[in-house]
Amino acid sequence: MADTIQPVILPDLDPTTDSQGKDALEPGYLVICWNDPVNLMVYVTHVFQVVFGWNRQKAEVHMLQVHRQGKSVLVRESLERAEHYVHQLQQYGLHATLERDRE
């Protein structure tokens, strides 16, 4: 005689909320800095050093990429951290955005 199957009660998950939470933790967001004609090169280099803790050489590489190519992808991070970095860059007056990494 087979045992009676006991009902199993599972937590009521909200798939939308769950996927957003997981998504926010994944390093799938790019922080991008865009070129503009107003910020000084030396200032942009300094901001990259301060915000990301980079040495001067790395900061200058990204600054020159912004200058010559119009933009530079600075970091790939979780949504929360990417927003934090965008906020910091905007506080310094740089034109920064975040976008989801499609690759």
Partner: peptide, 11 residues
């Protein structure tokens, strides 16, 4: 940072 060769250049 000390003097910079790029000092004053605008982007």
């Amino acid at each position: 940072h000390g003097p910079s060769p790029a000092r004053g250049d605008s982007r």
